[in-house]
Design a protein around this nucleic acid. Structure first.
Length: 727
DNA sequence: GTAACAAATGTTTTT
DNA sequence: CATTTGTTAC
């Protein structure tokens, strides 16, 4: 075939990349090895469609898995084609579905301002269902029930098929919970993450004319990380591409690391079966890593049976050897990492070029302690997420109630927050009343007068709560920021936290302030933007902005807030590392039982997924890779001795050198470097900042101190454990 | 109804 | 060990 090689968009691409960009028509599979310029190809392809093929941006839909990936793609396409990118749909599967559902969900009985339940909301609802069915939480743990329901939904198994596909008492009960759970979601006009995909597909099934609209509109479809699609995402892709078949999918089966949440790498392996006319282009040249790093990655991944061999190669040279270090325990591990990073900075390697990857979030704690103590700037991606903090969820629940009065989970959450004398007894009466009359909780609330069991005080409090909500609905017309400020003041939430006068409360106030700022920024960013359907440029009224704000927060993910902070080392899980690259990478906790995780040890399938995760980790590194393990590690306060991870032994020894043991400044590696303090000392705490010692009990490392932080609260601390240092 | 304390229980990874 | 849940005393 002939390609118009004169397009500047094809200029600095290799032949395979060029073909991937210019093959615009028909199904196309791009097998993109790690670091092979995948994003570059995708963005150039979009630009090529617009600039060379004359495709309207309105006709392009690009789907990614994370908002971060979507944002990056948008930014890079914008650099190529300009502001017209704002009119394009470049989004995650989930937000694309939300955009469709905001418009179409009323056909299925949902408000267009439906709520989106995150995992915690979802667990709460499962609990409520268990209570309603008089089931024991111990026998049916809500979290695992939610997980079962979630995986069923990812496979598009509704509660009827679920009930039919198994037998026995346990299965029947789960099916019953599933049924009630769905019923409650609909009644609350709410969807969980899985519903966003499943309901969209239901919508397409029930209203072919609606499906047709989106099929016709999106003539060109691009899907990133196709190996991570689950059944629902696969079918959604298929449905949208059914009319025109201009479907371009990009992925790498070796980087499939989400099977645990329903991803099925057969989707990418079977692409050519689904679309017999498909072209396949393989990108094998790696532009990211040194040869040594690539060889290590290839060596590890080749231990997975039944994979299609791939030969990633690079011409950047062999580079440094990988660095291997075995620490005595997790503290020594963290000390080594910190010391090594300091050593690297003395050789002009910036901290922002360094990342530390671990298997589980809990592993970040020791690293953080050590980094704080040594004054090493770092940022953690993920972990306790901002939007999952209690105070944030509380005020967001108020906002959700403002736009969706049916949201029962949000209602239950804030009915007595802040405390207004509506405890379990009163709320229990309300719930029984609602249930007996077949009313929603919101509807029952309006009729509290007719609940005989309630005392006059409770009735008045319920009434006051309703009035507050009305007031908030009124204020919400002023947009997200004003709505939020109204929640903080009118509900008494802020006052009640401030009244606690503790350090923790101070932190919460800070977080709430931050949220107000975020809301303000959201307004600024969305003022006068083009509206969802591209109908025209118009500022959206306050309540609609609020809905959009809630939606963006609901779908806000792990890596999304990540900006390369100047001078800070980045800490994250291996899962979060996908799609990123760093000149220097530390992989820690390379021990059997940690990585590979003990849950995977007996399961060949899961072990292979762990190995792919390892492959992902290794291939993030550009120049330098450290492989670190600890001979002993405390797990849940109990010391454990794990052997070195099989992944380390799978790497040829000639690719590695063993690091020398560094001189460690302190041998008794505990959190605090302080052994002696006196009243009046100024100290710095990892989380709470600077404070003054006001009391000391006992002596030595076992001593307890009382520290007054900023005069705004004080804290009892055990000297040996608290991450304290002298100012 | 709430606050303070004791016990139990749980950790993989995430849109 | 850290958070959440259950129990007790006000």
């Amino acid at each position: 075939m002939t390609l118009p090689v004169d397009s500047p968009l094809l200029a600095d691409l290799n032949p395979a990349q060029r073909e991937a960009v210019a093959t615009t028509e028909g199904p196309l599979l791009i097998v993109a090895g790690a670091g092979s310029g995948k994003t570059r190809v995708l963005t150039h392809r979009i630009a090529y469609l617009i600039r060379e093929s004359g495709v309207s941006p309105f006709e392009i839909l690009a789907l990614t898995f994370t908002n971060k990936a979507a944002d990056e793609m948008k930014a890079r396409v914008e650099a190529l084609v300009g502001r017209v990118v704002k009119a394009m749909w470049v989004s995650t599967f989930h937000s694309a579905c939300v955009r469709i559902l905001r418009r179409e969900a009323p056909r299925l009985g949902f408000r267009s301002s439906f709520s989106i339940y995150d995992e915690a909301d979802s667990v709460r609802l499962v609990k409520a269902c268990l209570a309603e069915l008089n089931l024991d939480e111990r026998q049916f743990p809500p979290r695992s029930l939610r997980a079962v329901i979630s995986s069923a939904k990812a496979e598009l198994v509704d509660f009827e098929s679920f009930a039919a596909r198994g037998s026995g008492r346990y299965h029947e009960t789960v099916a019953e919970v599933y049924r009630l759970y769905q019923q409650r979601l609909l009644a609350a006009s709410a969807m969980d993450y899985d519903d966003l995909l499943m309901v969209t597909l239901e919508l397409f099934g029930a209203f072919p004319e609606v499906e047709r609209v989106y099929q016709d509109r999106f003539r060109y479809l691009l899907v990133d990380e196709y190996q991570d699609t689950n059944r629902a995402q696969y079918l959604l892709t298929k449905a949208l591409a059914a009319g025109h078949h201009n479907l371009c999918v990009v992925g790498d089966a070796d980087q499939s690391i989400y099977a645990f949440r329903g991803a099925d790498s057969r989707n990418i392996l079977d692409f050519e079966k689904d679309y017999p006319e498909a072209r396949t282009i393989v990108l094998e040249q790696n532009y990211r890593s040194t040869q040594h790093i690539l060889e290590a990655a290839n060596a590890v991944i080749s231990n997975n049976p039944a994979r299609i061999p791939k030969h990633l190669w690079t011409d950047v040279g062999s580079g440094d050897l990988l660095v291997r270090f075995e620490a005595d325990d997790e503290h020594a591990e963290a000390e080594f990492v910190a010391a090594e990073i300091e050593e690297l900075s003395s050789r002009n390697i910036l901290r922002s070029q360094v990342a530390v990857f671990y298997r589980t979030n809990a592993q970040s704690r020791v690293l953080e302690e050590v980094f704080v103590r040594r004054g090493l700037a770092y940022q953690v991606v993920g972990g306790t997420k901002f939007y999952e903090r209690r105070e944030i969820k509380d005020v967001m629940a108020y906002l959700r109630l403002v736009v969706n009065p049916d949201d029962a989970v949000a209602l239950r959450r804030v009915l007595n927050v802040p405390k207004r004398g509506l405890g379990d007894t009163s709320v229990g009466h309300l719930e029984r009343f609602a249930q007996s009359r077949g009313l929603s909780l919101a509807a029952a609330l309006v009729e509290v007068d007719s609940i005989p069991e309630l005392g006059s005080r409770a009735v008045a409090q319920f009434g006051g709560f309703l009035d507050t909500l009305d007031l908030l609905r009124h204020k919400a017309e002023g947009g997200p920021q004003l709505a939020l400020e109204a929640v903080l003041t009118e509900t008494g939430y802020l006052t009640s936290i401030e009244a606690e006068r503790t350090i923790e409360a101070l932190g919460r106030v800070e977080n709430l302030k931050e949220l107000v700022t975020v809301a303000g920024e959201f307004e600024a960013a969305n003022a006068g933007t083009i509206d969802v359907e591209g109908v025209g440029w118009e500022a959206r009224p306050g309540v609609e902005q609020l809905e959009a704000f809630l939606q963006s927060v609901s779908l806000f993910g792990e890596t999304d807030g990540l900006e390369d902070e100047e001078g800070a080392v980045t800490l994250m899980t291996l899962h979060n590392a996908k799609g990123l690259e760093y000149p220097v990478v530390f992989m820690v906790g390379l021990e059997e039982g940690v990585f590979p995780h003990h849950r995977a040890l007996g399961e060949p399938g899961e072990l292979e997924e762990e190995r792919r995760l390892c492959y992902v980790g290794i291939t993030r590194a550009m120049q330098r890779l450290y492989l670190i393990s600890a001979a002993s590690r405390n797990l849940w306060g109990v010391p454990g001795f794990n052997s070195v991870s099989r992944f380390v032994t799978e790497i040829p020894t000639q690719l590695m050198r063993t690091a020398e043991r560094r001189e460690l400044p302190t041998s008794s590696t505990r959190s605090s470097t302080l052994t002696r303090v006196v009243v009046g000392d100024e100290v710095r705490h990892a989380h709470w900042g600077i404070g003054r010692v006001v009391e000391v009990f006992g002596s030595g490392p076992g001593a307890e101190v009382v520290v007054d932080f900023n005069g705004l609260g004080s804290k009892h601390l055990v000297l040996a454990w608290a991450p304290l240092s002298k100012v």
